[in-house]
Structure formats: structure tokens, C-alpha cells
Amino acid sequence: MPGLGYQTEISFAGTFVSSAIAACFAEFCTLPLDTAKVRLQLQRKASSADGAVSARYKGMLGTIATIAGEEGLPALWKGIVPGLHRQCLYGGLRIGLYEPFKMFIIGSYLFGDFPLIQNILAALLTGAIAIIIANPTDLVKIRLQAEGKLPPGVPRRYSGALDAYSSIIRQEGLSALWTGLGPNIARNAIINAAELASYDQVKLTILAIPGFTDNALTHILAGLGAGFFAVCIGSPVDVVKSRMMGDSTYRSAVDCFVKTLKTEGPIAFYKGFLPNFGRLGSWNVIMFLTLEQVKKILRG
């Protein structure tokens, strides 16, 4: 099949390594967009003395400009170390396990393309398993991204990724590294299914059009399609996940969902939609392009 698999040609280890490389490269390229998305999702509108409602961050480009202006350009790559940790684990596992899970679900008797429902089920399972293992890296990444410009003399909460891991364990306990696991499983399972299954499906649809071949243009279009479906479906759980990991005042995912709905309305669950799509769309294009090329090298 012309999808992600090539399961007869590349081993699980090869797929894991190529997926981790592609995911890490995409993470580095798009982290500023992700940082803007997290700041927008965590933002709460403040009322001034005259009753006017203001927002510190406005839009994707405005948020990026504000962060760069107030904190310096490197602040846009806050959380890059745990972000790379996350992609090595999560990125490698979710794609590395995808083909074996599809084969397990459908069996070895299938000839031709995998049915969409089996693709979705396999991606849901691999996304859930991968994020259970990688949740601590996600937590630390968001904690570092969430910290904005501090008043003079106020120390930063964490000096870096390793300090964040150790501080969280020391101050909050080992289990705190899995804060927000419920919405994170929901978010990543859903987004993984939207990305991988839609990438396969969009790619197959494009290849059925006369004149299209399995080349970079096809990979770009399929990657954009995967990113769009992932954001549309996963944005609400992504907001809940970011808020729970960035703010420890919420008791549970349900508590976070209810409070957000009551105080800000349903539109709050699509906060940061454009930077989220900008990030996930470009992330998927870069990741799938890189993944396809690395796999070609491994097969070559």
C-alpha cells in the first residue's frame, strides 16, 4: 500500500528511528508556533479599572512578536529539550507501532489497502500507548512554555528541563509527572488517529487522481490534510490538556472543562485554532516529508 507502512521492507526499529528523527526535526522547526498556541490557550482575559477587557496575546503572529519582544527570540523555543524528549518517545512509538497494530487488528489475510476504520482504531491505540509513556515530557514542555516574562527579581520556576523533572518529583511527587494524563490520552489518541488515518486516506485519494505520483507534492498535500483534520477534531481536548498541565488549580479534566465552559463559553475550546493549525499543518508537512525521505534512505 502507498501509505505509512512499508512494513515488509522496514523493521520496527527502523520505523521507530526514522519516525523519531522526522518528529524531532518537525518539532524544532515549528516550536515557536506551538509556544504561541500554548500561551493563547492559557490566556485569561483581564478587566482593567475602567471595565475594559484586554488580552495580552492577540493572534498567532501577534503572540510570537510579543514573546520575542518581551523575552527575546530564544523564548520561542522554550521547552525544546523536553519537546525533543517527547518526540523521540511519542513520535517514534505512535508511528512505529502503527503498522504492527494494523496487521494485528486486520490479520495477515488482507490484500490491497487497509479499511479506514482499522486505520483509525490502530492509530487510536498507538497514540494512547505512546503518550502514557511520554506524558512527563509533555508536562515539562508545557510548564516551560507557559512561563512568560517575570518581574525583576522574581526567579524562574525552573532553570531548565532536567531541573523541572526533578523539581516536580521533589515538590509534587512522582505521580505528578502524569498530571493531565486523561485529557492527554484523549487528545493524542484522537489527533494521532486524525493524522495517521487521514494522511493514509488523503494520500490514497490523491494518488488516484491522474498525474499524481508518490512524490513530495503528494506528501505535502496529504500532510496539510492530516493537520487540518487533527486540529478540527482535537482542539477542545488540547485546550483542556494545556490548561491542566499549565495550571495546577484544576482538580480534574471535567473540572477544567466545566470551569472553562462556564467562564469563557464554548469558543474557548478553539482558542489558538489558527496557530494550532499553523503549527500542526506545517508540523505534519515537515514530519511526513522527512519521514518518507528517511524511509527511502533506509530502504535504499
Rank of each mutant, 00 (worst) to 15 (best):
I21R: 00
Y98L: 13
K295G: 01
K295Y: 06
F12K: 00
I286M: 10
L124P: 01
V38T: 12
R143P: 03
Q7C: 09
G180I: 03
R86S: 10
N215M: 10
E292F: 14
P82R: 04
K296V: 07
I105A: 08
Q87T: 13
T8R: 14
L150D: 08
G69L: 11
I190S: 09
Y109Q: 14
G281D: 04
L31V: 06
I95W: 00
S282H: 04
T137C: 13
Y6Q: 13
K271C: 09
K45W: 09
Q87E: 15
P100R: 04
L42N: 05
F273Y: 10
L4E: 04
V285G: 00
I67N: 01
L73Y: 12
G211L: 05
Y57D: 04
I220N: 05
L261Y: 11
S159M: 11
G281I: 04
L289E: 10
K37M: 12
R94K: 15
G227P: 01
L139Q: 06
G83M: 06
Q43L: 10
I133D: 06
Q41T: 11
A46V: 15
G211D: 09
P236I: 07
V81H: 07
G107E: 06
K37T: 15
G234D: 01
L76W: 02
I67Y: 01
T66W: 07
I129G: 05
F288Y: 12
A128R: 05
V81S: 02
L97A: 01
S198H: 04
P115S: 10
K149N: 11
L289A: 06
R56M: 09
L224Q: 03
Y90K: 02
D200P: 00
G173Y: 05
E27Q: 13
K203S: 09
Q293C: 09
R187D: 12
L121A: 14
E9G: 10
L207A: 06
G153P: 06
T35I: 07
C232D: 08
T205W: 15
D163V: 07
G180N: 03
M1E: 12
Y6M: 11
L97I: 01
R56F: 06
D255N: 15
G173L: 10
P100N: 08
I185P: 00
Q118F: 13
F257S: 10
P115R: 10
A36H: 00
